[in-house]
Nucleic acid binder design. Structure first.
Lengths: 206, 206
DNA sequence: ATAATTTAATATGGATCACTATTTAATGGA
DNA sequence: TCCATTAAATAGTGATCCATATTAAATTAT
């Protein structure tokens, strides 16, 4: 961790990560198409040219904001899910609870930022939609990998369709996120999770 | 059914219901914000003033297109769900399968048109979002009412939290619709449903 | 035929969209 | 001090957004 050596030239008024955090929140609340560059520059307190020199384009900024948010919070969630000393069932439960609770910041929207992002979209935004779809697919594969491990470790029946099971709990995350958009509180989301967990096909070693 | 008595004046080139069907499909694929009035007029083969004289505004058209689609297809689905000679479990299964299959028309998108509509949105579209959220809530209440009946008829335990159960299967529909947007086929959606049905807390009289 | 009625087409309005060419300001180094 | 460097601010760009005032066309009634 270097001390930020001041380069020569005019100093930046906006920290890059602060900007990404603001952008991520706006995109999360309003969606990609519902967030204008004017919204973004206003929220960041900068002028349009600054936004474009820092982040490239609206689409580039969206990618960077997603990467930044995922890197920051998905790391914790992945650790919960992959934790080697937790049975798969408990890891899944804590993983889902974490999504229901959302960030520690109270004004931050609950649910998952990518699970319902850019589902319907204008043709011109197809590339953005492909990106979010790929992130969702990756999330499904992460769940599947954990379930495959559970099969190997005898926590799930050997004939378990782990792919289908991953897409089922992926659907739960997507449904939770949709209902969070509609204002559902986290206790309500956790009731939803509790029901979803009764579909767990393996033994419960809790 | 009256024969369409020709009124005097220039005849319409576009049938109202044909226009609503075209609009519904576009809004479904691209979302409310992702569909422009230019997209709509082009697809209907009309000019902007015709669209506004027939439907009022973009938002009015969206409401009418949703009402039209719901009236046409939700009637069948409601009949499946409310069918008096079907156990609640089977009614629910057929109801969900119907959503997974989508319309008979092959090019029509699968999933539910409202379950993931206008979740994130610009502030200026808040009223549209409130409408779709209200439709989703109504759909949840429809499920809950069916489950309440199932409790009365002894198909579900008396202590069943029917509200939570309705929101769980509502989440399934939302997750299905999201995955359908990402290209999931109906057999994959049905596998998802089959897992969700294992969370059914009552007896299976099938 | 002419009028009355209804709808369609032309042409465009103001606002906002994502984005940028140019100029100005603020720093460190020589 | 003066320059090189870096970033911010000004002031827009053409395109597209939703919507409409006005005119032209197509029909029935008289």
């Amino acid at each position: 961790m270097e001390k930020p050596v001041r380069k020569r030239g005019r100093p930046r008024l906006l920290d890059r990560e602060v900007g990404l955090d603001i952008a991520a929140r706006l995109f999360w609340e309003r969606g990609y198409e519902g967030t204008s560059t004017a919204d973004l520059t206003k929220a960041m307190g900068i002028n349009p040219p600054t936004l474009y020199s820092m982040f490239g384009s609206k689409e580039d900024l969206y990618r960077q904001a997603l990467d930044f948010s995922i890197a920051r919070e998905s790391t914790r969630r992945s650790q919960i899910l992959q934790s080697s000393h937790l049975p798969a069932y408990d890891a899944l439960r804590l993983y889902l609870y974490d999504i229901a609770d959302g960030d520690t910041q109270p004004d931050k929207p609950r649910g998952c930022m990518v699970s319902t992002a850019v589902l319907q979209h204008a043709e011109e935004n197809a590339s953005v939609a492909r990106m979010t779809a790929a992130l969702r697919e990756a999330s499904m594969q992460t769940l599947k990998a954990r379930f495959d491990r559970a099969v190997e470790e005898g926590e799930l029946p050997t004939q378990t369709d782990t792919d289908a099971l991953a897409r089922f709990y992926g659907a739960i995350i997507q449904g939770m996120s949709a209902q969070a958009c509609d204002g559902a509180c986290n206790t309500r989301l956790k009731r939803l999770i509790d029901i979803a967990l009764t579909a767990w096909p393996g033994e419960l070693r809790t």
